[in-house]
Simulated scan of single mutants.
Amino acid sequence: MAGKIPDLEVEARAGTGKGAARAARRNGMVPGIVYGGGQDPQPIQIPFNSLLKQLRAGRYMSTLQNMKIEGHDDVRVICRNVQRDLVKDLPTHIDFMRLNRTTKINLFIHVDVVGEDVSPGLKKGGTLTLVRPEVELMVTAGDIPDSITIDVSEAEVGDNITISSVKLPDGAKATIDRDFVIATLSAPSSLKSAGEDEDEDGEDGESAEVPTVDETTEE
């Protein structure tokens, strides 16, 4: 499960609209909004450099944070949208949603892999491919997992690891209602090539067999 909820210090933003947003950016801030939780939307702004560092660290959209605004009670939030400059790909606006511990929310959760060192399929030279490095789950805001784990310690070449083989955290549920594949363990490319060559040789070298016909007939 997720550890201590990190603090997110932001400032209340007095104005709204394009003019106020441009002014915030000129002052090295990224304008944003906090909504939900049965309260009115709250305009905010975050230091650009601080936000950019957190975004580059990864998994920002699936991290529950404790938002601190001077003069307001702390509130748990999660980022729901980051608007970016189309040319520079830098954040220009950010949206947060207020949560309580029991709020259900869809998040993409990172997939960890264990058992690679003892997997018989990998020892034979197989290749493990993560089809889904992240899996979308419906989780409870108070129990957001850092990751889910797939175990390949007994996986053979040709095996698929699906969501049904994963022990999900309490209260979590996959958003896709089918047993989808998370990872595959495929044969080594050398074995694939050898098999393909054998098939081609067999097709080219086969001589057409003439069926024998019994020409004697019973009278």
Rank of each mutant, 00 (worst) to 15 (best):
4 K>Q: 10
4 K>M: 06
9 E>F: 05
11 E>Q: 05
12 A>K: 07
16 T>W: 13
16 T>R: 11
17 G>P: 03
18 K>Q: 11
19 G>Y: 12
21 A>Y: 07
23 A>G: 00
23 A>V: 09
24 A>S: 08
24 A>R: 04
24 A>T: 04
28 G>V: 09
28 G>A: 12
34 V>C: 05
34 V>F: 14
36 G>D: 14
40 D>R: 15
40 D>E: 15
40 D>H: 11
42 Q>C: 03
44 I>G: 01
46 I>E: 11
48 F>A: 06
49 N>C: 02
50 S>D: 15
52 L>Q: 12
55 L>C: 01
57 A>Q: 06
57 A>G: 00
59 R>Y: 06
61 M>N: 04
62 S>E: 01
63 T>N: 02
66 N>C: 00
68 K>R: 10
68 K>N: 01
69 I>F: 04
69 I>E: 02
71 G>I: 02
74 D>K: 10
76 R>D: 09
78 I>P: 08
78 I>T: 05
81 N>T: 11
82 V>F: 02
87 V>P: 03
89 D>Y: 00
89 D>L: 00
91 P>D: 04
92 T>Y: 05
93 H>S: 08
94 I>K: 06
95 D>K: 03
98 R>A: 03
99 L>I: 07
102 T>G: 15
104 K>Y: 06
109 I>L: 03
109 I>K: 09
110 H>I: 06
111 V>K: 06
112 D>A: 00
113 V>Q: 05
114 V>K: 13
117 D>R: 15
118 V>P: 01
119 S>F: 02
119 S>W: 03
124 K>Y: 07
125 G>I: 07
127 T>C: 00
128 L>Q: 03
129 T>W: 13
130 L>M: 12
134 E>P: 00
137 L>Y: 12
138 M>Y: 13
138 M>P: 00
140 T>K: 04
141 A>E: 10
142 G>D: 08
142 G>Y: 00
143 D>C: 11
144 I>E: 05
146 D>S: 11
147 S>I: 01
148 I>Q: 08
148 I>S: 02
149 T>Q: 09
151 D>C: 03
152 V>S: 09
154 E>Y: 02
154 E>D: 15
155 A>Q: 09
163 I>Y: 11
163 I>G: 03
163 I>D: 10
164 S>Q: 12
164 S>F: 03
165 S>C: 10
167 K>I: 10
168 L>T: 09
168 L>M: 08
170 D>E: 15
171 G>D: 04
173 K>W: 12
175 T>F: 07
177 D>K: 12
178 R>G: 04
178 R>Q: 12
180 F>A: 14
181 V>D: 10
181 V>A: 14
185 L>M: 07
189 S>A: 14
190 S>L: 06
191 L>A: 13
192 K>Y: 00
193 S>E: 13
193 S>Y: 06
195 G>L: 02
197 D>F: 07
198 E>G: 14
200 E>G: 03
202 G>D: 11
205 G>Q: 14
207 S>I: 13
209 E>N: 08
210 V>E: 13
210 V>M: 08
213 V>Y: 12
214 D>P: 08
219 E>F: 00
